[in-house]
Design a protein around this nucleic acid. Sequence first.
DNA 1: AAATTTGTCTATTTACATTTC
DNA 2: GGAAATGTAAATAGACAAATT
Lengths: 462, 462
Amino acid sequence: MPVNSFENYPMSWKPVLPRSSRPLYTALAELLQRDIASGALLPGTKLPPQRELADFLDINVSTVTRAFKICSDKGLLSSVTGSGTFVSYDVNTSTLIIPENPAAHHIELGSMMPETIPQADAITILLKMLAEEECKNLFQYSYQEEPRHKEAAAHLLNRLGLSVTDPRGLLFANGGQNATAAIFAGLFHSGDKLGVDPLVYPGIKGAAKLFGIHLVPIRQENGEMGRSALLAACKNDGIKGLYIMPDYQNPTNHIMTLSCRRMIAETAQERDLLLIEDGINSLFAANPLPPVASLAPEHCIFLLSLSKTVLPALRLAYLQTPLRWAAALEQALYHINLSQSSLLLEIASRLTLSGRLEHLLAERRRGAALRNRLADKILSGYTLLGAPECLSRWLLLPEGTSGQEFEAMSSERGLSVYGSHRFAVGKEIPVPAARIAVCAPETTEELEQGLHILKDLLDSLS
Amino acid sequence: MPVNSFENYPMSWKPVLPRSSRPLYTALAELLQRDIASGALLPGTKLPPQRELADFLDINVSTVTRAFKICSDKGLLSSVTGSGTFVSYDVNTSTLIIPENPAAHHIELGSMMPETIPQADAITILLKMLAEEECKNLFQYSYQEEPRHKEAAAHLLNRLGLSVTDPRGLLFANGGQNATAAIFAGLFHSGDKLGVDPLVYPGIKGAAKLFGIHLVPIRQENGEMGRSALLAACKNDGIKGLYIMPDYQNPTNHIMTLSCRRMIAETAQERDLLLIEDGINSLFAANPLPPVASLAPEHCIFLLSLSKTVLPALRLAYLQTPLRWAAALEQALYHINLSQSSLLLEIASRLTLSGRLEHLLAERRRGAALRNRLADKILSGYTLLGAPECLSRWLLLPEGTSGQEFEAMSSERGLSVYGSHRFAVGKEIPVPAARIAVCAPETTEELEQGLHILKDLLDSLS
DNA sequence: AAATTTGTCTATTTACATTTC
DNA sequence: GGAAATGTAAATAGACAAATT
């Protein structure tokens, strides 16, 4: 029996365990899950200490721990030894980032789509391929890895400042998300911890949840990961690695400084971290800083997706991994995908090796610059982070309006944008901000229209 | 201290725990893993009972259980309450089924490739697409699911005897392996059990291992799953579902009888099982039997991959799922793939809706029939299971030669085939047999050459 | 058919590490 | 800076269930 009566001590959660034959820990976990889903427990709520709950329910602490662990693994809770257990901030936020139904006639400024236009080169190449005699294997399996494809991959990676030393470290995935999923499946275990920026691409949050990986936000100094916070995460949370996007971080568009890149590379070597460097935007940079993978090549897997910078339909990402992880990663990719499409691989390789990819990139940069000039002009006076070559901008909101509220208000006005809550990790309340995908609308007219709606909305808030 | 001295009682495994600060259970698990990898513990070996080991090591039984569980999850062990723990039969067999390096000049009769030729229709369609005005979205993201693609999927599923009642139950994956991975990631948890035939497609074994799912072989009656064995697996192993391939099962090519289909459908409904029906070969059947999914539509996810029957490079599989699993499955697919390639989706839909797919199928059937006639003729006198429309045949070997040995002997003679050990699940020694992929060689001449080598080898064995 | 063997699961004990105050 | 609060992980005890003999 519980020793004390708790009626005088307010507890944030007083579950009533059903008298059932079910195991205590599953019953408790389900209660917790239900109460979070129903809204009875709001994001940020501090749960009672495990010992107090155990006492209240007259069960053992470890039984509570076990129930909490189940919910933690699902991303519902985040706990810190010494401070307590909290309901995660982003539990009820979808990580599916898909454009609104076009029938709704929303102006799409949410989803990270590149401009639709620049694809003439791809079509030319495809036509040429189909006219060739040897095209008979274009629709066959792509098992026999033609060295040409690895050459193309190496070429692009070199262009970004990586040195490809061994082709066995080069692998293919069906896009960046697919590459991340394979890394999680093949190199991580459920329950492993991965350090990330406090605001990250929602796809990572979703993939981490799917594979039971805990994201640990690393506190920032000057807008990027801080050394002391990173060391603390290694020591206290036992993070296995880091996910980083040094070039044009999604969603803030921050370009990581060289000193921070060096710091991360050194820390990874000291603490034997597994770095996942997402170079999805790196091809946009005219003069990119050295990737972290070049500073810590034995500790970093570099992802180069062609979806955002080249063509989404290629569904292709190149991976470069240190050899010690190559076998496990190759297996995971094989068991998730079996193979790549020979047709798409071939288009990508020809685009790269023919040099037409550079023209396409230049076109993308031109298009983005035009759109970003529009955004800067129309929203002048507001803080719009990001460079002219970015697919999206990060709009800081006037105090008093959360990202979530702003997203809702925009939606009422026929505009899709994504509030900062969608990118937030852990229990912290995110800064009020929203991501504006300037390249997503089909036409610049539509973009202009959307930006004016945004401006009016912002004006009305301040 | 241990009560007895064990020196007089032979134990199959006498590990020596290192004096380390590491947790006991991890240390023990690693020892076990090393001894299996090194060959000190051979497949099939029965390990000492957990209590005996615990006593010997002077630790608790549960600590041994925990160590064993780690290895079990990796597929190294299989244990049965009451009988003991055994080293799995297939631990050291790769589940990567990839053709030999072509430089080795092997004749490829191992990998399940369809014939290379029939793709003229696809090229015609692709050329037409590229000539159209509206082709501007072909290289863009495919988020806006054009209803046309779901129409095409529904058309093919209907053709196989399924009734598509709700388009929300229709989903897309990057091929059959990718669909399976998404089902495992989204609907299963690590440690869940899945019933399968005693011999299965190695891709399933690999994916199951990747996601920590235990495969439970269901004993057969008359060459297919038996009711009593299935019930036993439900009751004793607590299997969550079944993976089945009723049409031309890989590798045995067995076509499941209608009564067995009914039995599985009924059992799934009684025991609330999650059925995964792989229809990868179903389009080959001229008059297919009703799929299990049509008999138990609320309990069955049907997979229709286009890789083997249509074109491998399309990397496309259609999934039909009961609505209760649709959301979780869609999320898993999203977080693993983000999206499909619009280009490939479009080719597939046009092939289907234009009716050209039927021509292509007919061509595949013709080609397969020709190759299978060759095989039947050259290997007459030997048991070669499978129908004329199959991509591969299942060769029963003379007694005394295991599949593994036969695979090695073939390889010495410049021939790739896959022995039955690659398909075996659990601790049973597989029947001596090998899979002969008659459609894999580029030319029929090469096939003929390969078959003659096989015949000579077989003759020399009997 | 009953007793025994054997694996599995839940809940607990205990030690420990970090944060907070 | 030390004590208290708080979460975590390992090892254990004991009940249970299936298979064997």
